[in-house]
Amino acid sequence: MRLEKLTPANYEAAFDLRVRPDQEDLVAPVVKSVAEAYLYPDNAWPRLIYDGDRLVGFLMAFLDIPWNPEADPDDRRSGLWRLNIAADAQGRGYGRFAVDAVCAEIRARGGSLVYVTWEPRAGGPEPFYLKLGFRPTGEQADGETVAVKDLSAPS
């Protein structure tokens, strides 16, 4: 498995990437994420996930964004913004690989906390993120559960 930047040669395949139909309300399509990455180039870290030559997913991290500047201007966070694993590639470790890659990137940039949000509903990704060591903070963002993983804690 490896990560690749989006390029003129691979972006169309990335835009065709689809999660399972029952997950479409949980994550934005790749095209929307790429547009947001363009709008926030200093904070977005989009990458494609490949297994050999096969595109199996997309991830986007957010890096050092002001979380709630009105409440605390010094609260800047980094974490996983989007994770889209192709419907036929799920359950094979690509999601774990993606989360580990985001954690490694944040650690390399000097971060020790990684955030993620999820829609709290049956069939949602909560069990996946809890299994990877994320813990709810008690906060909500746009109705989603906010969770954090401490990279300095033993795994």
Rank of each mutant, 00 (worst) to 15 (best):
L3G: 04
L3H: 01
P8H: 07
A9Q: 10
N10R: 05
Y11W: 14
A13S: 15
A13K: 14
F15D: 04
L17S: 08
V19G: 03
V19S: 02
E24L: 13
E24G: 10
V27Y: 05
S33T: 13
Y38W: 11
P41N: 11
P41S: 07
D42E: 15
D42I: 00
A44Y: 03
W45Y: 15
P46S: 10
R47F: 08
R47T: 07
Y50M: 11
Y50P: 02
G52S: 14
D53T: 15
L59N: 05
D64Q: 14
W67G: 07
E70P: 09
E70T: 10
P73G: 14
P73D: 14
R76S: 02
W81K: 06
L83N: 00
A87W: 00
D88G: 09
D88Q: 10
Q90C: 04
R96F: 07
V99F: 01
D100P: 00
C103P: 03
G110R: 02
G111T: 07
L113Y: 10
V114W: 00
V116A: 08
W118Y: 12
W118D: 06
W118Q: 03
E119I: 10
A122M: 13
P125T: 00
P127K: 08
P127I: 01
F128E: 01
Y129L: 01
L130T: 12
K131L: 03
F134K: 04
T137K: 08
Q140L: 14
A141F: 15
A141N: 13
G143A: 10
T145E: 03
V148D: 00
S155Y: 13
